[in-house]
């Protein structure tokens, strides 16, 4: 039984972020890959949409510059033939402050011939921003709309 592309990609991604070993991940990304990590790009420049392998590798390098993955748990995972979706909880360390960050993340990936062609990632970004700031953001109470 062949290993699903997600497992190879996931191992290579974590090796790239934690060990700055980018050769494995480079081989697993399609030249025309579409990539989106949704979130406030003014606060986190590595978030946002990218197209093409070079742009995605640049984002992965920025992630490696900023974070160390301490631990991740897949709370839910679905594997299709050439696709995968998973809900994860990441425990990271922000390298500039040595601050721990805990994230809820959803990943939707698509592969072709073993290479990543699409990755969409959703993060509970309000929680991320509060953790990065180290304090709560005081929002107005809304009772009539929203």
């Amino acid at each position: 039984m062949t290993e699903h592309s997600l497992w190879r990609f996931s191992r290579a991604l974590h090796r790239a972020i934690n060990d700055r070993h980018f050769e494995d991940i480079e081989a697993l990304i399609d030249e025309d890959v579409e990539w989106a990590l949704y979130g406030p790009i003014d606060m986190f420049p590595f978030l946002g949409a990218r197209q093409g392998k070079d742009a995605v590798l640049d984002v992965i390098r920025q992630l490696a510059d900023n974070f160390q993955v301490r631990r991740f748990d897949r709370e839910s995972i679905m594997l299709g033939v050439d696709s995968a979706a998973s809900m994860l909880r990441y425990s990271l360390t922000a390298l500039d402050s040595n601050k721990p960050i805990s994230l809820r993340v959803a990943q939707f990936a698509q592969f072709r011939a073993g290479k990543l062609t699409s990755m969409r990632v959703l993060i509970d970004t309000f929680d991320l921003v509060e953790q990065a700031l180290g304090r709560a953001i005081h929002l107005p109470k809304m009772t009539s709309v929203g």
């Binding site: 949704y38 979130g39 406030p40 709370e75 839910s76 809900m87 809820r104 993340v105 959803a106 959703l122 993060i123 509970d124 970004t125 309000f126 929680d127 991320l128 921003v129 929002l139 107005p140 809304m142 709309v145 929203g146």
Partner: peptide, 15 residues
Amino acid sequence: IREIIDSYDLVQQVL
């Protein structure tokens, strides 16, 4: 049912 939302963006749109 479990949902994950880009909650920062959602809050801005609601506000």
